[in-house]
Amino acid sequence: MRFESPTTTKAAVSLLAAEKGVSHVLAGGTDLLVRMKMGAIEPDLVVDVKRIDTMAALTVAASGVHIGGAVPAAELGESEKLRTLWPGVVEAANLIGSDQIQGRCTVVGNLCNASPAADSVPALIAAGAKALVIGPNGKRRVSVDKIVLGPGRTSLGHGEFIEAIVLPARAPKSGDAYLRFTPRTEMDIAVVSAAVNLTLARGVVKTAKVVLGAVAPTAISVPAAARALIGTKLDDAALEKMAKACRAACNPIDDKRGTVEYRTKVAGVLGRRAALLAFERAGGRK
């Protein structure tokens, strides 16, 4: 294995593009190193992107947020401004592992690891985040929900990686929330998760996005659940309709972390709870 730590994206792209064997980008390494330790992968080349300035940068403004691909999740939580603008995105990112993991893991890594249970992904999709992809053929801007194709699989081509995640301008009267269910209070992988991002107009929900995690091969948007919220103040009937839509959208598996039955049921519960939290954060009053 070779280890490289270029200082420009251009150099990183050429290293990755030129590699004939197995190459991996190293940002936080909290998934990559585990897979190496388990013998699941044996890379020929590892490219550390943490010394690339643009990738280590976090810029936060109401007009948009730029999260460099090497920014540790802990840094997102340390930005008060980001916590105010996108509390759901921040809490999702901050739920990835312990403080130790937070010091390393990145939302880009969380996305590219392509786990159906990734914490930050539902919140990013709900937020309408875009990925800035860079590769041998230049840059492209891709919706986050187009990156993951299935467990462990992404749409990134050979030599491509994600330079940054960009969050859109934040409309007033907006709020987002992310909730996950885990048996432990910390150090756990989501059994089910739900992200809700919504905007209010005159006290009622004007736009909404509902995304579920760990209930399908990828995080899934549930437009029917979002529609159930729009035009309401989250009355019980709207919430029940929303929860039902969440349950209907589930296509989970039985595994060591949860059953189909359990995941489906709890998806509705978390969807409803996340909607209430996002609504409250947007300044909504029932």
Partner: peptide, 26 residues
């Protein structure tokens, strides 16, 4: 060795990390 127990906690440039999830080269 997989970042789940914290026994190898160290600081790297002041940030708390698990040494098992950092390459020596880094």
């Amino acid at each position: 060795g997989t970042g789940d127990c914290g026994a190898c906690s160290i600081t790297l440039d002041g940030r708390l990390v698990c040494a098992c999830l950092v390459l020596g080269a880094e």
